[in-house]
Amino acid sequence: MHDNIVDRSKDISILEALDRVLNKGVILTGDVVISIADIDLIYLGVKLMLSSVETMEQLKSGRSIKEIQ
């Protein structure tokens, strides 16, 4: 039972890790974050988070990451 609940299976763990590392944690302000390689990481993070939530819902319905992609 416990193994089913603590779901550190690959797919969900990757999405959860991405959500955290892109959207949470200590923030260093200033132009350093925004100007990295001309990519707005905050914007990228939000987009990624939204798609992660959608993907997770599809995973819940039993589809694998490959099927979703």
Partner: peptide, 20 residues
């Protein structure tokens, strides 16, 4: 309901300050 518990994670959601 379907419960999905994940972890342990580093405390990403519990560091609430912006470095000055």
């Amino acid at each position: 309901l379907t419960f999905v518990l994940t972890g342990p994670w580093p405390p990403y959601n519990f560091v609430d300050f912006t470095v000055k």
